[in-house]
Design a protein around this nucleic acid. Structure first.
Lengths: 228, 228
DNA sequence: GTCTATACTGAGATAGAC
DNA sequence: GTCTATCTCAGTATAGAC
């Protein structure tokens, strides 16, 4: 009866540590102690198994996100919800989930990195995502829709690395213990908050000459096109 | 004689569009018109083939990055190079590479997402990476080494999504044409620049009670721990 | 409905003939 | 250097026991 659960648990554990492509069904069934065909009976395919692994927990996180953003919007009345609070509504449920189950959050990050999440999000969480996009748009009305969505794209990438990124600096393993997770997420929020608050990107200077003239003549220090 | 080149070219093209895991050696050899065993003869394994695909072009980008940061440091004299200029030294060579060969840059982003790049970077580009970390540290001396490296981690994640991310919003495909690539990268730089410039993350408030009290009582609006 | 046994196709890798 | 044959292991499909 709990064959399904055993498969889901084993899959979550293994995929979180080894990635989706790096985990074979035979590993999963061996750890779960079930038969290979049971996976396809219950889930259809490896990809569908992944969907179920993610959905059974992501749904709650998503629900909580929706609840928080609604609460903040109600509190804000007619005015916009601040960028900081929108990000809080987005990340706080994730931090909570990570405190309860670090594995799952790591798995989500990995799946995002492997490019497997967007399809799922589009299938199941599009409304929530749109809701956050609109909230951010109200908080930063100067930003074009294009720029805002790119910044959200950047946000997802940064989040993915925050959650499951491997260290680039071997001499020091930053993510020592799980208790540091909440701190990392707060660092992420600070970083992203500033990013969203940045002035709009000037769209001018479309390849006049070759911008790579930077190369061998000194770069003018003062009048950069970037508002930094 | 050009068997090696044919394999490298086909691999770059296919992996850039389908990812590493999603591309089989048999696809590659079919497109290159060579024998399967030739791959293992010339490169040893699929993973090693990927290393060669990346290294043959990434080395130049990396060299250019090193050259630029050195130039900026020379111009700055004893003072620090600004965050903006450090990021320029980092991204400008990549923008150039993308203008010449969009495929390659996309491939790099994909590999980063799949978690295959950090090992390579550590093996071959550690000195350059350390150099940029030091430059950023001088530009933002208030940041602890840990926080700075996390922000770099966020940067890599955002970059990865900027370069190869799939759209989350189906109704509108943002990355319409390749000419938009430079604009996206400038948007990324503006975003990241603000992120690095953000005030340090307060490390206090370590789980006193349960921070999720946010839940059912209204969240205090004013006195947030995040400096946003 | 639930699970087992087994076979099928395609993957990466390797040994050895030429 | 190159190619054939073959090995192991992956995901998948199905027939049939209970």
């Amino acid at each position: 009866m709990d064959t399904k659960q055993k498969i889901l648990d084993a899959a979550e554990r293994l995929i979180a540590t080894q990635g989706f492509a790096g985990t074979s069904l035979r590993q999963i069934i061996s750890e779960a102690g079930v038969n290979l065909a049971a996976v396809h009976y219950h889930f259809g395919s490896k990809q569908d198994l992944l969907d179920h692994v993610i959905l059974r927990k992501a749904a709650a996180v998503n629900e909580e996100r929706r609840r928080l953003i609604e609460q903040f919007e109600a509190e804000a009345g007619p005015g916009p919800v601040s960028v900081e609070r929108v990000l809080t509504a987005f990340f706080e449920p994730m931090i909570e989930a990570g405190a309860r189950n670090p594995q799952f959050v790591k798995l989500m990050g990995r799946m995002y990195g492997e490019g497997l999440l967007p399809a799922l999000i589009e299938k199941h969480f599009q409304p929530t995502l749109t809701r956050f996009a609109q909230a951010l748009q109200r908080a930063r009305p100067e930003l074009s829709q294009g720029e805002l969505r790119w910044r959200m794209q950047f946000m997802f990438g940064a989040m993915s690395q925050a959650v499951c990124g491997q260290d680039m600096f071997p001499q020091m393993s930053v993510q020592a213990d799980d208790s540091a997770f909440a701190l990392v997420m707060r660092r992420l929020m600070v970083f992203l908050c500033a990013g969203f608050q940045a002035a709009i990107t000037p769209e001018a200077e479309t390849d006049e000459g070759n911008r790579y003239s930077v190369g061998h003549s000194p770069v003018p220090a003062g009048d950069s096109p970037k508002s930094c």
